[in-house]
Simulated assay, not measured.
Amino acid sequence: MRKYTWVLFIFLSFNVYAEENKCILFKKDYSQYNNENMYDLDVYITDCQKNSRKVESFGYFGDSPKINYYFFEKSNGVNHLFISTYVLTDQYEENSKYVYENGKYNFIKVFDCFDFTCKVNKKLINFFGDGANLVEVKSNKIVWEYPYLTADKVSKDLNSNFLKLWLNKQLKNGIIKNKTEIYNDSGLNSEKLGYLISGDKFNILDITSRWLKVSYTSKNKKTIIGWIRCEDTNVCNEY
């Protein structure tokens, strides 16, 4: 017989947004697992009393989700619910030179909420993105920090011109400020495709976790598409 047949209440938070009080409730759900240590994390929006509606169920391969932070914030007339979770994992990506700091990998989900209805905001989820602090194995030093480990950093970019211009399709190009390598995917642990130098101009195709997916055409008309760090461009520096 399974040891855990009940649902455990682990958080109850009284957050206020719009003109109504709303709370977020997390429940551990063991029903999908034979291992008593594994669970999915179900999220509910409530009136802080009896009425509630399920928002989402978080479940990841290999480890149960844990909470970094969660909060409501209103932007452009929309009440956004941010939930940051993480898992501990020894599954790493392409480049064995790097590992995740303390094995911690982070996820962000964003929902647009009105009363008890919350819908996934894919654009904001993609913009903030998933990720982890990367540690170089040889030196044991952090070589890249995931930019949204704390709620205040999310809130700062949520209200930035950087995001506003991107969502309004006004952020279309940029200029390299510091020599930067271009990668196949958004991360130092991805395959290197080459590099761009100060003054190179590029078109922006996508943004996630302060990485830019760009298209660059050289003087000999050769086009390369890949990911660069936003901090090496005027995009993050000026907006």
Rank of each mutant, 00 (worst) to 15 (best):
residue 1 M to D: 10
residue 3 K to W: 07
residue 5 T to Y: 01
residue 8 L to C: 05
residue 12 L to V: 08
residue 17 Y to E: 10
residue 17 Y to A: 15
residue 22 K to P: 00
residue 23 C to H: 04
residue 23 C to S: 11
residue 25 L to I: 11
residue 25 L to T: 14
residue 26 F to E: 05
residue 30 Y to F: 15
residue 30 Y to K: 10
residue 30 Y to R: 12
residue 37 N to C: 01
residue 40 D to T: 11
residue 41 L to N: 07
residue 42 D to G: 00
residue 43 V to N: 02
residue 45 I to Y: 03
residue 46 T to Y: 01
residue 47 D to L: 12
residue 48 C to K: 03
residue 50 K to D: 03
residue 51 N to W: 00
residue 53 R to N: 14
residue 60 Y to S: 08
residue 61 F to V: 10
residue 63 D to E: 11
residue 66 K to I: 02
residue 66 K to Y: 08
residue 67 I to P: 01
residue 71 F to P: 03
residue 74 K to Y: 01
residue 75 S to G: 07
residue 76 N to I: 00
residue 76 N to M: 10
residue 76 N to D: 12
residue 76 N to H: 12
residue 77 G to R: 08
residue 77 G to N: 14
residue 81 L to Q: 10
residue 84 S to W: 03
residue 84 S to E: 02
residue 85 T to E: 08
residue 86 Y to E: 07
residue 88 L to K: 14
residue 89 T to R: 09
residue 91 Q to M: 04
residue 93 E to P: 03
residue 94 E to L: 15
residue 94 E to Y: 10
residue 97 K to I: 00
residue 100 Y to R: 08
residue 102 N to A: 14
residue 102 N to W: 00
residue 104 K to C: 01
residue 111 F to G: 02
residue 112 D to P: 03
residue 117 T to H: 11
residue 121 N to T: 03
residue 121 N to W: 01
residue 121 N to E: 10
residue 125 I to G: 07
residue 126 N to L: 08
residue 126 N to S: 15
residue 126 N to R: 13
residue 128 F to T: 00
residue 133 N to E: 10
residue 133 N to R: 04
residue 134 L to T: 09
residue 135 V to I: 14
residue 136 E to Q: 14
residue 138 K to C: 06
residue 139 S to P: 12
residue 142 I to T: 15
residue 142 I to S: 13
residue 146 Y to W: 05
residue 146 Y to H: 06
residue 148 Y to M: 03
residue 149 L to V: 13
residue 152 D to W: 08
residue 153 K to Y: 06
residue 154 V to R: 03
residue 154 V to Q: 07
residue 158 L to Y: 05
residue 164 K to E: 08
residue 165 L to N: 09
residue 165 L to T: 00
residue 169 K to M: 02
residue 170 Q to W: 00
residue 171 L to M: 13
residue 174 G to T: 05
residue 175 I to N: 15
residue 176 I to Q: 06
residue 178 N to S: 15
residue 178 N to Y: 14
residue 181 E to R: 13
residue 182 I to F: 14
residue 184 N to S: 15
residue 186 S to M: 05
residue 190 S to L: 09
residue 191 E to T: 14
residue 192 K to V: 15
residue 192 K to W: 12
residue 196 L to Q: 03
residue 197 I to G: 02
residue 197 I to M: 12
residue 199 G to C: 11
residue 202 F to M: 06
residue 204 I to Q: 05
residue 204 I to H: 04
residue 210 R to Y: 01
residue 211 W to N: 04
residue 212 L to K: 03
residue 213 K to A: 01
residue 215 S to M: 06
residue 215 S to A: 10
residue 216 Y to R: 00
residue 217 T to R: 05
residue 217 T to S: 10
residue 222 K to Y: 05
residue 223 T to S: 04
residue 223 T to R: 03
residue 226 G to F: 08
residue 228 I to N: 01
residue 228 I to C: 02
residue 229 R to Q: 11
residue 230 C to L: 05
residue 230 C to Q: 01
residue 230 C to H: 01
residue 233 T to N: 13
residue 234 N to G: 10
residue 237 N to M: 07
